[in-house]
Design a binder for these strands. Structure first.
Length: 467
RNA sequence: GGAGCCAUCGCCAAGCGGUAAGGCCGCAGCCUGCAAAGCUGCUAUCCCCGGUUCAAAUCCGGGUGGCUCCUCCA
């Protein structure tokens, strides 16, 4: 397995800390609002990563956190009158439902900030004890970036010039604009506050990830985990700060490899809540099947930016359709053993920093070859069984192609319409029997108007919903 | 102002110094009563200008254009 490390900015051979095992921590969402396509892209990218490791016979431990303490959540509590727990549990549940619909496998660990307060407090206390952090008069605790000689080594974005480092306003007591909050003291009684030795308040954004990783992963003398992942926007300052905290608190590096996924864009601009161009997952899933969305969002390499368009999504579906058409051809039946050449080619592609484009090309080649062989030998049962195994492997590795193929093409067609289609097809085949082609073609036109495409085969007439 | 990323056929997109994968669309053909599906065939010298090299889409320098980070952000 080779992966691109965003710290060294090059593709590296993956060598696990512990042989045969891989530990991955991905920054999850802040749960104060609905997830959009960008959240899906990130989840999907790391889902592909864990599936690939699993197929390579690694034992994977994946952690994805939920940030459930945050200024925006507090704001929402104040505005809505609901409790923090009500709000966060609602969005966590919805996030998980939507990820299920996309075929994202659940993380092994889903730590929350509210459940990690003791670990957070302990890490901040360690940093204070070791003099890597300082408390100011209002109770805030800051990380002293000047004490960390390696600060900047993750993102390479730290300026020598303090004035240019940040555009945010700073408290006077902060020693440097680069310093960041580990702990924010409560300013008034309405806020959500937790008692600690240093002050009553809440954790800063960066500390939870560092603390959770220490809490859940054993690590070694060199690294806490193998891979740390997240969106490209998290590289700086979030991951830089995480790395600094962990390095200074534990004496070793946080992660051996760092991976960052590219953005989902709308009309060439980053999708974000602040820009107001978000396409929410709940809306997308109301319009399109989760598997289709998954296929589309995964069809471009995870590090590239992804310019989303509904037209492209529909075109992308055609490529998925081809897998299911072949699956129809080889169904029903039981899968035998996956073709080893096919399996190797697919795995090789994904082992090269998740090269999905090559993987899809390998699949298309398998599709074409199998279709061709079936054209000349339609009853080849050995071939059919192997093909079912091949498609099952695609589903295991990439997470699509697993549905029952006939129902796949009928998603969105209700029972009433299905019965109507069946009646029309019966009438059409009777017309065809007596060579009344005018009548049979008229029925086909009616079906087209209903959004249904038909195809005559030796097994009878099949139909699909037009997308 | 500081720090990066990207630019390949009409569209999407691989390529990681050795002579341009794949998909969509289009055209022609096979199959079909006609279609659909499937199969076969056809379509690019890689934003521009220099340089390095026997050899560059791939490396270096300079442009142009787009995006991102430096504030919450996947």
């Amino acid at each position: 397995m080779h992966i691109y490390d965003s710290v060294q900015k090059t593709k590296l051979l993956f060598e696990p800390i512990h042989k045969g095992k891989v530990s991955i921590y991905v920054c999850g969402p802040t749960v104060y609002d609905d997830a959009h396509l960008g959240h899906a892209r990130s989840a999907l990218a790391f889902d592909l990563l864990t599936r690939t490791f699993k197929s390579l016979n690694y034992t994977v431990t994946l952690a994805k956190n939920f940030t459930d303490i945050d200024d925006k959540i507090i704001k929402k509590v104040q505005q809505s009158g609901k409790s923090m727990e009500e709000i966060t549990s609602f969005y966590i549940a919805r996030y998980l439902e939507e990820m299920d619909a996309l075929g994202v496998q659940r993380a092994d660990l889903e730590p929350k900030a509210t459940e990690s307060l003791r670990a957070i407090e302990a890490m901040i206390q360690t940093l204070l004890d070791k003099d890597f952090a300082y408390r100011i008069s209002n109770g805030d605790v800051y990380f002293d970036t000047s004490k960390d000689r390696h600060y900047g080594s993750i993102s390479h974005q730290v300026s020598e010039d303090d004035e240019n480092q940040s555009r945010v306003a700073h408290t006077e007591e902060k020693r440097s604009p680069k310093d960041f909050a580990l702990w924010k003291a409560c300013k008034n009684e309405e806020e959500i506050c937790f008692k600690t030795a240093f002050s009553t308040g809440r954790p800063g954004w960066h500390i939870e990830c560092s603390a959770m990783i220490e809490k859940h992963f054993s690590g070694t003398e060199n690294y806490s985990i193998d891979i740390h992942g997240g969106g490209a926007d998290l590289l700086f300052p979030h991951h830089e700060n995480e790395a600094a905290q962990s390095r200074c608190a534990t004496g070793h590096e946080l992660a051996k490899y760092w991976m960052h996924n590219g953005f989902v864009q709308i009309d060439g601009e980053k999708m974000s809540k602040s820009l107001g161009n978000s396409f929410f997952l709940k809306d997308a899933l109301a319009l399109y099947d989760g598997e289709v969305l998954r296929f589309y969002l995964n069809s471009v390499h995870y590090r590239n930016d992804f310019n989303f368009s509904e037209e492209e999504l529909k075109l992308s579906k055609k490529r998925l359709d081809k897998i299911y058409r072949l699956k129809k051809r080889v169904s029903p039946g039981t899968a035998s053993t996956v073709n080893q050449t096919f399996k190797t080619l697919l795995l090789n592609a994904m082992s090269d920093d998740l090269n999905i484009s090559i993987a899809l090309a390998v699949i298309d080649e398998m599709l074409a070859v199998t279709n061709e062989m079936l054209d000349s030998d339609p009853q080849n049962k050995v071939l059919k069984k192997e093909c079912l195994a091949n498609i099952a492997f695609i589903d295991t590795l990439l997470g699509f192609g697993g549905k029952e193929p006939f129902s796949y093409f009928q998603i969105g067609v209700d029972e009433t319409l299905k019965q109507k289609i069946t009646r029309m097809l019966q009438e059409r085949s009777e017309a065809k029997k007596i060579k009344d082609f005018a009548r049979s073609d008229a029925i086909r036109d009616e079906l087209t108007e209903l959004g249904i495409s038909i195809m005559d085969t030796s097994e009878g007439t099949l139909w699909e919903k037009l997308s």
